[in-house]
């Protein structure tokens, strides 16, 4: 893995991939095939890749394999279902006259190791029922939970993290 990422051919492929991604976004934003716009788009995309390519996750191009894309397609509908459930949950709590909340910050453990996977996990947790990621330290996540069901690490991990972790591990690791 280390040697592949260091080689110039791989770096060039990553740059080319990033350039194509930027150019696609440019095409989507302008939505014309006027030659002048296309030329400007090529220049802008090349400039962005040249100056800002350090900001992209370096092994992003390795993620585009059919198996990972399949699990991504599984993940997105499940994620949207969780988002809808979260919204109905908030709607219920806010409209209920007694405000049925029992908030607290709990600590959970994740087995994911890469930064990209952890980012996706934290964002998914924030958008799903009653949970909000406050901080990440190493393998621990601090979660604000609007209705605390388990205060210990293991119990909270099973309820909050496990449902996403299994799919995210298949996508990112």
């Amino acid at each position: 893995m280390e040697s592949i990422e260091k080689s110039t051919g791989f770096k060039f492929r990553v740059r080319l991939f990033e350039f194509l991604l930027m150019f696609l976004i440019w095409l989507a934003l302008t939505w014309t095939i006027d030659p002048l716009t296309l030329i400007v788009g090529v220049i802008v995309a090349a400039g962005v890749v040249l100056f800002l390519s350090d900001l992209f996750p370096p092994n992003m191009v390795l993620l585009f394999t059919p198996r990972r894309l399949f699990w991504l397609l599984v993940y997105i509908p499940y994620f949207l279902y969780c988002v809808f459930k979260a919204n109905l949950d908030v709607l219920y709590r806010v409209l209920h006259p007694d405000l049925p909340i029992n908030p607290g910050i709990v600590k959970v453990r994740t087995a994911l190791t890469t930064d990209l996977a952890k980012t996706f996990l934290a964002n998914s947790i924030t958008l799903t029922p009653g949970t909000l990621t406050v901080d990440i330290e190493g393998e621990y996540l601090y979660i604000h939970w609007i209705n605390v069901l388990a205060k210990d690490i293991e119990g909270a991990t099973i309820i909050i993290v496990n449902k996403f972790e299994n799919i995210l591990r298949r996508i990112f690791e």
Binding site: V90, V94, L99, P103, L132, H144
Partner: peptide, 24 residues
């Protein structure tokens, strides 16, 4: 409902919960 939660819920963390999810 997100805005209503912003008014009704007690502290900054609970308010973030409602505003993030519903407004998204």
């Amino acid at each position: 409902s997100g805005c209503l939660g912003l008014v009704r819920l007690p502290d900054v963390y609970n308010r973030l919960q409602s505003s993030t999810k519903c407004v998204t």
